Computed example of a mutant assay.
Amino acid sequence: MDERTIQIRNEYITYVRLEKNYSIHTVAEYEKDVDEFLEFLKAEGIYTLESITYQEARLFASRLYDRDLSRATISRKISSVRSFFKYANAQYAIDDTAFRLLHHPKKEERLPAFFYVEELEKLFAACEKENPRDLRDRALLELLYATGIRVSELTSISLPDIDNDLGIVRVMGKGRKERYVPFGSYAQSAIERYIEISRPILMKTITHNRLFVNLRGGPLTARGVRHVLDALVDRASIQSNVYPHMLRHTFATHLLSAGADMRTVQELLGHSDLSSTQIYTHTTKEHLRRTYMNTHPRA
C-alpha cells in the first residue's frame, strides 16, 4: 500500500485504542480486520483508498462469504472497515460511500445456550471439596453465576474491586465502562473462604492484587477460566458443549424467567442497547414452549 494509506491505518488504530478507549481484544479485532482488507486491496492491485468503489466493497464482502465465515463474523469485518473509512473521511475527506452502501448480512437467529438448574447443581457439586483448587473454582463459579459478568471482566477484577461486606463487585466492561454488580450470600461465602484460605496458598511467594489466580500463583487468564470450567464439566459428567459465556446467558435467562424486569437485567449485564438483552426473552419463551410440549398430555 502507499505510505499515506499506511499512515491512515496506523492513526486509525491509535484512535480506536486511545480516543475510543476500546479494550485490547476489540482493538486487536479492528486491526486484524483492517489489515485483512488492505491485503485484499493489494491482491487486487489497488494501493490507495481513493480508488475504492462500491464494486470493490462488494467483491470484498463476497470473498468473505466464499470462506464460509459466520454471518456475525462477516458483519463485524464489514463494520470494522466501514469504521476505518468513516475515520478516513472525517480526517482526510476520503470518500466512504462504498462501505456506507454495503449492507450487513442478517445475523443467524441462534438462541443463547444456558445451564438448567440441575446442571448447575452438578457443577457446584464438582468443586465442593476443601482443597485450594476447589475453593478457588467454587468462588469463580459462584461469582460468574451470581453476577453474569464476562470472563474478561472476571479476570481483570482486583482485590479492592470486591466489597464482600456489601456484596458488590466493581467491573470494567466494554469500552472501559465501569459498573457495580451485586452478588448474593453463596458467592459472598465462597469468595471469603477463597481469599482467606486458598488464595494465599496458591500465591506462594508471588505478589499481585488480581482476585483469581492460577495454580502457579499468577493472574488467571480467560483461557485459564475455560480450563477450569472444562475440568468441572468433566467431573460433573455434563454431556453438552459448554463454554464460560454460558454462565452469563444462564444468569440473564434465570433472572428473566423468575420475573426480573428487562431494564434491570440490561444494567446488570452492562448492555448499552436493550436489544442485546431482549434475546434472553426469546430463550425463556422457547424454554416454556418446550417444557409445555414435553409435559402437557394433549400438547
Rank of each mutant, 00 (worst) to 15 (best):
K86D: 05
K129M: 08
F84I: 11
L69E: 02
Q55L: 14
P182W: 11
E142G: 11
Y186E: 01
R193A: 06
E3Q: 14
S237D: 14
L288A: 15
F124C: 01
G173K: 01
Q239N: 11
L64F: 03
R216E: 11
A146E: 03
V27C: 07
A72W: 09
L111K: 01
E11A: 06
L220E: 03
D95M: 05
R263A: 10
R100E: 15
L255R: 10
S62W: 07
D165V: 15
Q188D: 11
F37Q: 05
A98C: 08
D134Q: 12
S79R: 04
K107W: 04
Q91F: 09
L159P: 13
M203F: 10
S75C: 05
I52P: 01
P112L: 00
G217L: 10
K107G: 12
D165F: 14
K177Y: 02
I168C: 04
R216A: 08
V117N: 11
N21T: 09
R263I: 04
P219L: 04
I6L: 14
D68I: 10
R179T: 06
S189R: 08
G218L: 11
K86I: 13
F124Q: 08
E11M: 13
I46E: 04
S189P: 07
I52D: 03
T284C: 06
T48Y: 12
Y92Q: 07
T284W: 05
L268K: 00
H245N: 07
H271W: 00
M203A: 13
S237T: 14
T283K: 02
H249Q: 05
V34M: 05
L111H: 04
Y54A: 15
K32Y: 12
A260L: 13
D273T: 00
I94W: 07
K204N: 12
Q239R: 09
Y87M: 12
H282Y: 03
S272F: 06
R216T: 15
L268N: 06
R263C: 07
V16N: 02
N209D: 14
D68S: 09
K32S: 15
E121Y: 09
I13G: 00
L64T: 05
A231Y: 09
S23D: 05
T283R: 02
S198C: 02
N10V: 13
T291Q: 12
S83F: 07
T277F: 06
Y180Q: 08
I191V: 13
E50V: 10
K174F: 05
F99A: 01
L229K: 00
T73Y: 05
V117R: 15
L140E: 05
H245D: 07
G45K: 07
A222G: 14
K177R: 10
A43N: 15
A187I: 07
N294T: 08
I78R: 00
Y54W: 06
S152L: 06
E39R: 12
I46G: 03
H282G: 06
V151A: 10
S62C: 08
F212L: 02
A231G: 08
L256Q: 01
D273M: 02
R58I: 01
M203S: 05
V81R: 02
S75V: 04
G175P: 00
L59P: 11
K122G: 09
P297F: 13
S276R: 12
A190W: 02
G259M: 12
Y292C: 12
L18V: 14
A28P: 09
I13H: 01
N164K: 12
E142Q: 04
E108G: 08
V228T: 04
E267A: 06
A43S: 15
R193I: 13
I74G: 01
